[in-house]
Simulated scan of single mutants.
Amino acid sequence: MKLVKKNIQSTARAVLLAESEAIRQAIDCIDDQFEQIVETILQSSGRVVVTGIGKSALIGQKIVATLNSTGTPSLFMHAADAIHGDLGMIQSNDVVICISKSGNTPEIKVLVPLLKRTGVVLVALASQTNSYLCLQADFVLNAHTEREADPLNLVPTTSTTVALALGDALAVSLLTARGFTSQDFARFHPGGSLGKKLYLKVSDIYPHHEIPTVSLRATVHEVILEMTSKRLGATAVADENGQLAGIVTDGDLRRMLNRFNLPELGDLHACDIMTPSPLCIHPDEYATHALKIMQERSITQLIVAIDNQIKGFIHLHDLLKEGLV
């Protein structure tokens, strides 16, 4: 095979342009029937079963993954395997989405009558709306494309892109109709940094730390010892009632050295060098909110408090360790 390296960039741009234009044209195919499909799935007591063959099967698997992660129970059934036993997974209250560019492949022609016999609602996702599949289906998701993106008009490119985009449109329409929240999303994505961003709270982190605290009248020496022993680079300052009065950080110590002469340091107390009314965060806040505050204020720790009662500290290193940064 002779390699042709010229015009590589223009070829890539032409592919992306063709696929983006096909998706733009698909927007015009969103009609009342699309809305009826969404409502049918919402009202169904079964699952969404997606089937297809070849590249359509791969697109179907991605659509199933997206539906499951956004609250619509789904499963994938390969069209070829369906007629060799996998049809047994179908229940009469399911909604089946069959993906096929032509809608006329031999496997689809065999499968469709078998699906109709089970009593399921059949949705066709196809490019040719006058195909066998579309004529037999209860609903049609029109994935019409003029041509594929390759020069030979043979490789499934534009057609699979449109099918995938319609699957995303369906999934997002369903989650919007259900009022799906980020908390719901977190239940299905508990692993990795994405899951942690959605469910990890300050209360999950701060109890692992000691609580550096000094009184208002603590000497500078006592302040430094407390900060050093607890290793958080800061200490809370509490009044005589144990209420939060301020915070002393490494930065406060450096500013102290600039403001006072060395002989004066022995006469200083925590109340003289602290930052009063420091920023705090509630234990029930999400860790991502703590990170946002730290980033906006260019600080590395926050006091965790409830109604001015000191509960602990959360440090930027905690968030780094959890993979939130």
Rank of each mutant, 00 (worst) to 15 (best):
1 M>K: 13
4 V>M: 14
5 K>N: 14
6 K>Y: 14
7 N>H: 13
7 N>L: 13
9 Q>P: 01
13 R>L: 15
18 A>G: 11
22 A>G: 11
26 A>V: 02
29 C>A: 11
39 E>A: 15
44 S>C: 06
46 G>N: 06
48 V>K: 01
50 V>R: 01
51 T>R: 07
63 I>Y: 11
73 P>F: 10
78 H>M: 08
79 A>S: 14
86 D>I: 00
92 S>P: 07
93 N>L: 06
98 C>A: 14
98 C>T: 10
106 P>C: 02
107 E>V: 02
114 L>T: 01
119 G>V: 02
120 V>F: 05
129 T>F: 11
130 N>L: 06
131 S>N: 04
132 Y>L: 06
136 Q>V: 00
145 T>D: 11
150 D>L: 12
155 V>P: 08
165 A>Y: 02
167 G>W: 05
168 D>F: 07
171 A>C: 10
177 A>W: 03
179 G>C: 08
179 G>S: 09
181 T>G: 06
182 S>F: 08
186 A>E: 02
188 F>E: 04
189 H>T: 03
191 G>K: 14
192 G>M: 05
194 L>Q: 08
194 L>Y: 00
201 K>W: 00
202 V>H: 03
203 S>E: 15
206 Y>C: 07
208 H>S: 15
208 H>L: 13
210 E>N: 13
213 T>G: 01
225 L>N: 04
229 S>T: 08
230 K>Q: 13
239 D>E: 06
241 N>M: 07
244 L>T: 02
245 A>Q: 08
246 G>H: 03
254 R>Y: 07
261 N>F: 09
261 N>Q: 14
264 E>C: 07
274 M>E: 09
287 A>C: 09
290 A>C: 01
296 E>W: 03
297 R>L: 01
302 L>E: 03
306 I>G: 02
308 N>Q: 15
312 G>P: 00
312 G>Y: 01
313 F>G: 00
317 H>M: 12
324 L>Q: 09
